[in-house]
Amino acid sequence: MNCEQVQKLIHAHHDGELDVANTLQVDEHLADCPSCFNAVRQLSALRGALQDSELRFRAPTRLRSSITAAVEQAVRAERPAVITRPWYRQPAWSVAAVLLVACVLTLQVSFRRSDDRLLAELTSSHVRSLMVNHLYDVASTDQHTVKPWFDGKIDFAPPVKDLRETGFPLLGGRMDFLEGRAVAALVYGRQKHFLNLFVWPSASSSPAELRATQRNGYNVLRWSDGKMNFGLVSDLNEGEMREFVREWAAK
């Protein structure tokens, strides 16, 4: 990487939003380039100056109480109208349902912290691959080109399938990192959307059922066939992503 390329990336680097491969390259450059290194130091100094807690405004107490009062008033005003609706259409029930879902999610998160970390890593790997235009190391629509590319780069042979006929053309593959290990990332397209399919060997030999989650607006589908773990991430809707999983299993 030259200075110009590095200057483009140092903010993302500084914000921890850069993928592993680019981070390594930027680090390498910084070690040898005093000018770029100085730019990074300037960013750190600036961040230091912005960390002063006095810079963050806190909501005044009167604002808090005035909002609470206004909300209570709004509830009272709405009540007569609400009673005429069927019970399941009352806002309180919908809110309760939302909260219940939120509670269940929260519980899952607290019980399965590592699971959450994986979810976060899957999503951020996906975002980074799009952000720095580093979708694939090997660009090919041919599964027989993509699959051998991984030979010698990772310690397993990921299954590679082309789902072009069903509207998910294979675009390429790259190496990525999840939970500290190298994994295969296969990139598929669906109209203007990109799907990253992360593949890594499964620790348990029993298949795991499909689980769909959302994170930061991305859909994440995870499953295991007993040999490999799969993580599919995209901004595509969940329905079409499930279709991908069905086609993948059928092929």
């Binding site: 963050r56 405004f57 806190r58 909501a59 005044p60 604002l63 808090r64 909002i67 609470t68 909300v71 209570e72 509830v75 806002p91 309180a92 809110v95 309760a96 939302v98 909260l99 939120a102």
Partner: peptide, 26 residues
């Protein structure tokens, strides 16, 4: 059953400082 206001208090109001901070800076 908690009412709508209570749900709002629990879900949204914890983020009031963040909301005010953004508004105040803008």
């Amino acid at each position: 059953m908690p009412d709508a206001a209570a749900n709002f208090d629990q879900t949204i109001l914890p983020h009031l400082d963040a909301a005010y901070n953004l508004a105040r800076w803008l």
